[in-house]
Each structure stands twice: as structure tokens, then as C-alpha cells.
């Protein structure tokens, strides 16, 4: 990176704009820089910044989140590396006594190569699905119905993830339900927080910037009266869809309600560009498919509410007592 204290401010900013795109430090590399970015308030916004119209420090907030993810990732990597080294040492010791141990060595190498291939398969481009420009789920048709389906909850919070157009979240909050809004997209998250800050205290939504499945996985079992899923449930792969549903069901209290707001397949195909359609890991399931999947998950009563006005269907099911 070309940097010079004598460089005119506009050129310096031009170069810094690229430096900010690096994934940044890690436990092993540039750790001090990583920590500086985590602990230092926002630097001045760049004149080539792409976030016009959003909070000036949004970029830095996003960077801090990314850096912290990176640090955690590296902790895991270091532990994994230590384990690998230890295993290799054990194999080396074994080989001193048993010549056939080279077969074990070969198996480990083969396994390592398979893991590497698997990692490439899982994240071949390094693009997170949330980085695609996808339309927000228009859930307005169901905003009034969802509080009724949840029946006011049982005093336990309701998780809404992702936030889509916030209509469902607002309706639940207006109905006096304790709502947790979850969304991994910084822009959506900060916009929701700003909107909530302008609401009276009665609007009881809280927000978390995180992948929905991670948030659900972190919840105590049977601790939520309802879970409303949209957006993430559409673009996820089959395995990720099932992980989302399983995590939601685990978090629900007996009798709790799971609502899936899913995009109509034709509307989805028409709304997103070809590149996103090709590269996203998944596409929305047909409501009938969801009925089959949920029945397979042991849900006895599955209601399918097809879109009458919009392009979003609602699937409602309740966890058995």
C-alpha cells in the first residue's frame, strides 16, 4: 500500500478507501491493528465512501464487527492447528516404531485435503449471501395477522429475524409483545435501531446484529413464545433452512408459534438479478414444500396462508406441548 505523510489529503483518502476493504488483522497477524480498529472510534468518513445517506460511522461499525468475527475465527484456527500439529507429532512418534503408520499419515493428509475442498465448496467465492442486493421481504400483508397467530405470546419474547420491511416487528411491538429483532445486515440493523429510538417507550423492540441462525442457536431452550422468520429462510440452502427451523423450534416454548414468511418463487425469480440467482445458496421453498418439511420435523398442524395481495406466503405452525 502506498502511504506517505506528504501525500495530499484526497490521494491519501483514495488509498485508505481500499485499505478499509481488507478483512483486517487476526490473532496471529496485525493483531494490534485489529484491536485498534475495535477500540478506536470512527475515523473521518472518506469522500469516496459508498454509504451516503447512512450514519457516518456505519463503515467503522461494520469493520469492527468483521474484525471481531475474524479474531474469533482465528482463535478457532489456532486451536485446530495445534490439534493438527499434535496429531502429526503423535503419528511421527508412531512411525518410528510401526512402519505401517505411514498409511495413517496418508489418511490424515487425504482428510486434510478433503476438508480444504469442503471449505472451498462451502465458501468458494468468499461472498456472504447478505452481500447480495436482494429486495426486502414485503410482509405488510401479514403484519396484522402475525400478532393474532402468536396470540400475544406468553410473556416470553418473540424473535423476528430478519427484519424485512419491519412491518411485522412494528405490529408485534405495538401489540405489547417483547420483540427481539435480528438481522445480519448492518444497514438494516442500524436503520431499525434509529427508527426504534424515535418510538415511545412502549415500543419494546430490541435489536441484534447477527446471523439469525446463530442468534437462535444461542438462545436457551423453550425460552421464546414465537419466532418469525423471513429473508434468511428464502436464500438459505436446504441444510441451512433446516438448521434455521430446528433452531427456532428448539428455542420455542411448548405451544409457541413458528411463522415463516416466504417469498413466492415466481416473484423471487423476477425480483433478483441473474448473478444473485446463480450464486445464492438457495431459493424460496414453495409453501407446500414447507408443509412437507415441517411435517417431517414432527409438526402436526401446519397452516399455509397464500398471498392474496403481495408476494409473500405465510406458514404457521405451533410446537407441541
Amino acid at each position: 500500500m502506498t502511504e506517505s505523510p506528504d501525500l495530499p489529503e484526497d490521494e491519501q483518502e483514495l488509498l485508505e478507501a481500499f485499505a478499509r476493504l481488507a478483512p483486517e488483522g487476526s490473532a496471529e497477524w496485525n493483531f494490534e491493528n485489529s484491536m485498534r480498529r475495535l477500540s478506536t472510534p470512527a475515523e473521518r468518513p472518506t469522500w469516496v465512501g459508498p454509504w451516503s445517506g447512512l450514519p457516518a460511522d456505519l463503515w467503522e461499525r461494520g469493520r469492527a464487527t468483521k474484525a471481531s468475527e475474524r479474531v474469533m475465527g482465528d482463535v478457532i484456527k489456532v486451536v485446530a492447528q495445534d490439534l493438527t500439529d499434535y496429531t502429526q507429532q503423535a503419528v511421527d512418534e508412531l512411525r518410528r516404531f510401526v512402519p505401517e503408520a505411514s498409511a495413517v499419515d496418508a489418511a490424515i493428509r487425504s482428510l486434510a485435503a478433503r476438508v480444504e475442498r469442503l471449505e472451498r465448496t462451502a465458501d468458494p467465492l468468499g461472498i456472504r449471501p447478505t452481500e447480495f442486493d436482494l429486495p426486502a421481504t414485503d410482509a405488510r400483508e401479514w403484519a396484522r395477522a402475525v400478532p393474532a397467530w402468536l396470540d400475544g405470546g406468553s410473556g416470553l419474547p418473540v424473535v423476528v429475524g430478519e427484519l424485512s420491511d419491519r412491518s411485522v416487528l412494528d405490529a408485534l411491538a405495538d401489540a405489547g409483545v417483547v420483540v427481539e429483532g435480528v438481522d445480519p445486515r448492518g444497514a438494516v440493523f442500524w436503520a431499525a435501531e434509529e427508527a426504534a429510538a424515535a418510538q415511545p417507550d412502549a415500543h419494546r423492540a430490541q435489536f441484534t446484529l447477527r446471523d439469525v441462525v446463530d442468534h437462535l442457536d444461542g438462545l436457551a431452550s423453550s425460552s421464546r413464545s414465537g419466532v418469525v422468520l423471513s429473508g434468511c429462510i428464502d436464500r438459505a440452502s436446504l441444510a441451512e433452512k433446516l438448521a434455521l427451523v430446528d433452531a427456532a423450534l428448539a428455542a420455542l416454548t411448548p405451544g409457541g408459534t413458528l411463522v415463516l414468511l416466504v417469498a413466492d418463487q415466481q416473484a423471487w425469480d423476477a425480483a433478483i438479478d441473474l448473478v444473485s440467482r446463480d450464486l445464492l445458496p438457495g431459493r424460496p421453498f414453495h409453501p407446500d414444500t414447507w408443509a412437507v418439511v415441517l411435517a417431517h420435523r414432527g409438526m402436526a398442524d401446519v397452516e399455509v396462508h397464500r398471498a392474496a395481495q403481495g408476494s409473500v406466503h405465510a406458514i404457521v405452525t405451533r410446537k407441541g406441548s
Binding site: 481500499f18 476493504l21 478483512p23 467465492l125 468468499g126
Partner: peptide, 16 residues
Amino acid sequence: PEPHYGAALRRYVADL
């Protein structure tokens, strides 16, 4: 050889 640098270049091009 790795995805991040190339993705950042493309993002930089778009941002500019």
C-alpha cells in the same frame, strides 16, 4: 489465489 483481495478490488472499483 484467494477470494478476499479480488473481492476488495471489485468493491473498490464499484465504490469509485
